[in-house]
Design a protein around this nucleic acid. Structure first.
Length: 481
RNA sequence: GGGGUUGUGGUCUAGCUUGGUAUGAUUCACGGAUGGGGUCCGUGAGGUCGGGGGUUCAAAUCCUCCCAACCCCA
């Protein structure tokens, strides 16, 4: 590649400068761009296609089988609603964007939703009267605003982002707890099957749990630079919100009861996790299950054989019915240019068809992740591509899983712990789990925070690696986004 | 809050010291050739030089205020 052409592509290597590399991939693969409004981002069609794939999977594999209904609640929330649940109000107040009374013309300020518990549960208090109304399971796809001061990172941190939030109400504590974990497990399955993203599944510590929740469960992915990324959460809200919002029902016993609630969400942050995990120095690598296109057919054109080659390209495109196929018939770009472009944009498979292939009734098939070229007859192209898409999806997951597993270190002492944190590992150790202790650990380690307590949490023996008090849990720690 | 750096077609950039109406590349449009890993030639389009004010016959250039972005220090 000539030197002066290099800046069309990614100019830094993933392993040299991950943040810069990541930004370039997002921009140059046309997934997203920065907005003129500080802290916000534009999601471009190639990026939005990933979100649509998440939505389609989610609606089919979580919403429907779990009996959840989609709905929509307002963007604006009365200030008084916010203050009904004290912990919730305190946790979110630093990053809520408000519409002042002068603007609203009402008696109170309105919050731009950072999350919708309060506005939804106000409705729930009117909807729920009887045990026959339960369980109530509602989800909404929407945008939320959290007025952060930290620098914007495309998909990973922006003041406005897209997500889904599910909010369910149950008659019993057991049912509530069971489904809270069920949603989390389905999140993990989504990450695996759709995004080829392995995640840790666990429970948040007191310090890290959601404001107003009894228990917060989480899935955590681990990025190539040794920082964890929270990819989804599921909160058992207990009865706190129900009491604050006056949600109650009459049971079969003809007495009044307070129900149990959970809420669970995942966001466009997932897109960032996928890009960062799988992509490489040539640009985006997208798992086939979420790619905006599966195949790009690039004809190799020579003046004397142009028509025959284009004819075969069209035939092959027809035979790939059911897949999303781009036939790149642009006349003003060379084949090499197109190769680079589709690699940059993360199309999983490229098919090259030139005069030599036409003569042999074959096509050249190239996998985006490995760059491996193979040859298939025109008749077998569909089968070959299908198999390749499936194995690519699988291989991407396995590669990421190997990285995750090789990043986990078990620490037996404070020194082992800090050494491993320094090496940007995902460190497992035993701790007291107290908020003050965790605050101090964060200060001493330059920002390491607890990721989660494994779901199969069993009583532990020994003392907290940091403070020496009796340990309560095994906890994963790492730096994080 | 304090200090510094930088703002020039969509993008990157020359020019600023020493004032004379903006250089080149890329992108975009059209034409021709080329075509198995970012091809070349030609023609054309595209600029309130971050904004206001001042000095001057004349300001991208000098002075001043403002704005924005980035960096450093509290």
């Amino acid at each position: 590649m000539p030197e002066e052409k290099k800046d069309i592509g990614i100019t830094v290597k993933k392993q040299d400068d991950l943040p810069e590399w990541y930004e370039q991939v997002c921009l140059k693969a046309e997934l997203a761009e920065f907005s003129p409004v500080k802290g916000c981002m534009v999601i471009r069609p190639n990026g939005y296609a990933i979100w649509e794939a998440v939505q389609a999977y989610f609606n089919a594999n979580i919403i429907k089988p779990m009996g959840v209904k989609n709905a929509y609640f307002p963007l604006f929330i009365p200030e008084s609603f916010f203050h009904k649940e004290a912990e919730h109000a305190e946790g979110f107040s630093p990053e809520v964007a408000w519409l002042d009374k002068e603007i609203t013309g009402e008696g109170e300020r309105l919050a731009v939703r950072p999350t919708s518990e309060t506005i939804m549960y106000d409705s729930y208090s009117r909807w729920i009267r009887s045990h026959k109304d339960l369980p109530l399971r509602i989800n909404q796809w929407c945008n939320v605003v959290r007025w952060e001061t930290q620098a914007t990172k495309l998909f990973l941190r922006s003041r406005e982002f897209l997500w889904q939030e599910g909010h369910c109400v149950y008659a019993t504590e057991e049912e509530c707890e069971h489904e809270t974990i069920e949603y989390l497990k389905r999140y993990a399955t989504l990450c695996k099957e759709l995004l080829a993203l392995p995640v840790l599944i666990g429970r948040k510590t007191e310090k890290e749990k959601f404001a107003g929740a009894k228990t917060t469960y989480t899935i955590e992915a681990f990025m190539p630079d040794g920082k964890a990324l929270q990819c989804g959460t599921s909160h058992n809200l207990g009865q706190g919100f129900a009491k604050a919002f006056g949600i109650s029902f009459t049971g079969k016993d003809e007495k009044m009861h307070t129900p149990w609630q959970n809420s669970w969400g995942l966001s466009t942050r997932l897109i960032g996790a996928v890009i960062m995990t799988h992509s490489d120095d040539k640009g985006a690598v997208l798992p086939p299950a979420i790619a905006h296109a599966h195949v790009a057919i690039v004809p190799i054109i020579f003046e004397d054989s142009k028509e025959e080659v284009m004819e075969v390209c069209k035939t092959v495109k027809d035979r790939l019915k059911g897949l999303s196929v781009i036939l790149d018939d642009r006349d003003d770009y060379t084949a090499g240019w197109k190769f680079n472009e589709w690699e940059m944009k993360g199309v999983p498979i490229r098919i090259e068809i030139g005069p030599k292939d036409v003569a042999k009734k074959q096509v050249v098939i190239v996998r985006r992740d490995s760059g491996k070229k193979s040859v298939a007859s025109i008749d077998e192209a569909y089968k070959e591509v299908s198999v390749m898409l499936e194995s690519m999806q699988h291989d991407l997951y396995r590669k990421a899983e190997e990285f995750l597993e090789s990043s986990i270190v078990e620490a037996k002492s404070w020194k082992e712990f800090t050494d491993a944190i320094q090496k940007r590992k995902l460190v497992k150790g035993i701790f007291c789990g107290e908020i003050e202790c965790e605050d101090t650990i964060k200060d001493k380690t330059g920002g390491a925070s607890s990721r989660c307590i494994p779901l199969d949490d069993e009583p532990v023996e020994g003392n907290c690696l940091h403070c020496g008090n009796p340990a309560q849990h095994k906890i994963f720690y790492s730096k994080s986004y």
